[in-house]
């Protein structure tokens, strides 16, 4: 049988382990993002963001490079203001890159895809992405397709 000293020590380690698990789950699985704290912010304005949500993925060429930090409506322009946080690892994206909102699969979540531009200047913390394409909405797409095909006839 273990001495009571060892038992108390093991129980203490056990509780520490549980607290570690708590922190891991709270940080890694829920609240914060992949690039919590680090990375740099860029902003983009869209006329329509569709179903984009905070914490959505930001990718370039299919690779995740950051996430959406916040979404708000600009009171003056009445456009959607999307703040993204991009990992420090990708610190020389061209300044004139464009942002589009895509949908992963037909029913999947929406995310932001960045298209690289040609400028030698990199995007910096606080910069604004000027070229944006709004979310493609399925309903609009269908309507447009139907109108167009009628017109052709």
């Amino acid at each position: 049988m273990k001495s009571s000293h060892q038992i108390e020590l093991t129980a203490g380690i056990f509780l520490l382990l549980a607290i570690g698990a708590l922190i891991f789950l709270a940080v890694q699985a829920t609240d914060r993002g992949v690039v919590a704290g680090g990375g740099y912010q860029v902003t983009a304005y869209f006329s329509n963001i569709g179903g984009l949500k905070p914490k959505a993925r930001v990718s370039m060429g299919g690779v995740s490079i950051g996430m959406v930090e916040s979404i708000s409506l600009d009171p003056d322009t009445l456009e959607a203001r999307v703040v993204m946080r991009i990992s420090d690892q990708y610190d020389d994206l061209p300044e004139d890159s464009s942002a589009s909102i895509f949908t992963a699969g037909i029913l999947g979540d929406q995310f932001i895809g960045l298209e690289p531009g040609g400028s030698p200047e990199p995007l910096r913390d606080g910069d604004r992405i000027l070229l944006t394409n709004s979310a493609l909405q399925l309903e609009q797409l269908i309507t447009r397709y139907m109108f167009d095909s009628e017109g052709d006839d």
């Binding site: 699985a29 992949v34 959505a56 993925r57 996430m67």
Partner: peptide, 12 residues
């Protein structure tokens, strides 16, 4: 990254 960020995006 997708695995974790999808989890983080939905779990409150």
């Amino acid at each position: 990254i997708t695995f974790w960020s999808n989890m983080q995006a939905t779990v409150e």
